[in-house]
């Protein structure tokens, strides 16, 4: 069975559980977006996956190779973009990529070709001979990515790869990751930019306090959860209790807030009952000045699931 499989994984740091019975499967060919607030345990999962940290309980398999038992074999299949920049200052951009690619066993023409491709991947080919001490933070971040892709890994793990990177290069990187994925690379993508996850990933997992609280395609996640949309209406009159009560009694409406001239209605789906609301308001001779519908998207979903909190 190919793919990456977290099987009931537990990790503790001094009796403090950081990853809690994690069961997660990433199929070959997928791009998994891993979301979670700071300190949720995302990086810890990755560190266990690439053998940096021992797994306290359970196991992780990559293409059925157990990380616990055959860590070196398992590590050959992956490329990791670490969360922190990890490059050698005394080497040029090209030398950095070459060094890591060589450690993965690349040689000769293959090495040269892959290094050039990796540098093009992050748009640093023109700066390949520059010492990286002259690089900006964003350029270093891009090189950090290049060092992880040069050996064409079957599984690419990216831990917040696009922090500090300008929008042009970010788009380019996202496109390139998609391209890599088309060529068969499976990707685990950790990010706090929900937009990125939205455009890139076909599978999403949300981690909070080390527990997997949601997992599935974007559509599945949104439908699984009984989430509501919000309609904000700017009205002409102050609170009208009769109108408010009637609104609240509507089957689909779950909550109504009326402050000054601002009406906030929480409901299942605005599309279905917008007509009803407008009709009701006109019945009470309340005119609508402006109207805004807040759709449920990944961000609201994420904030909802993780209660919008971030750990220390």
């Amino acid at each position: 069975m190919s793919g990456i499989h977290f099987k009931d994984v537990i990790k503790r740091f001094d009796h403090h559980i950081v990853v809690d019975h994690l069961n997660l499967k990433i199929n070959q060919g997928d791009i998994l977006g891993l979301l979670g607030p700071n300190g949720a345990g995302k990086s810890t999962c990755i560190h266990m996956l690439c053998g940096l940290l021992p797994i306290d309980y359970g196991d992780i398999t990559i293409n059925d190779i157990s990380v616990k038992q055959h860590v070196l074999e398992a590590k050959k299949l992956i490329g990791v973009v670490p969360q922190h920049i990890a490059l050698y200052d005394h080497l040029s951009a090209e030398e950095n990529v070459t060094f890591f690619a060589k450690l993965y066993g690349l040689k000769g023409n293959q090495l040269k070709e892959n290094v050039a491709n990796a540098l093009q991947f992050v748009r640093l080919y023109d700066l390949r001979h520059e010492k990286i001490t002259r690089f900006s933070e964003g350029q270093k971040r891009r090189l950090n990515i290049a060092c992880a892709v040069a050996h064409n890994p079957a599984y690419l793990i990216m831990d917040e790869p696009t922090v500090c990177i300008d929008p042009q290069s970010r788009n380019h990187i996202l496109e390139s990751v998609k391209e890599l994925n088309k060529q068969g690379t499976t990707v685990i993508y950790i990010s706090h930019y929900i937009e990125e996850i939205k455009v890139l990933c076909n599978q999403i997992a949300i981690l909070d306090h080390g527990q997997l609280i949601a997992n599935g395609t974007k559509k599945e996640l949104l439908s699984q959860l009984d989430l509501h949309e919000k309609v904000y209406i700017q009205v002409s009159s102050l609170m009208n209790s009769a109108a408010k009560e009637e609104l609240e009694n509507h089957m689909q409406v779950s909550n109504v807030l009326w402050e000054n001239q601002q009406l906030e209605i929480t409901l299942q789906s605005a599309q279905l009952i917008l007509q009803d609301i407008l009709f009701l308001l006109s019945k009470y001779e309340i005119s609508v000045q402006s109207l805004h519908i807040e759709k449920v998207d990944l961000e609201t979903l994420f904030l909802n699931l993780t209660s919008g909190t971030s750990h220390q």
Binding site: C50, G51, L52, L72, K75, P82, A86, L87
Partner: peptide, 14 residues
């Protein structure tokens, strides 16, 4: 300190 050690440890070697 520079994290390169951690990165090396992610590669397939002891």
């Amino acid at each position: 300190k520079d994290k390169t050690f951690t990165r090396l440890r992610m590669l397939p070697m002891k």
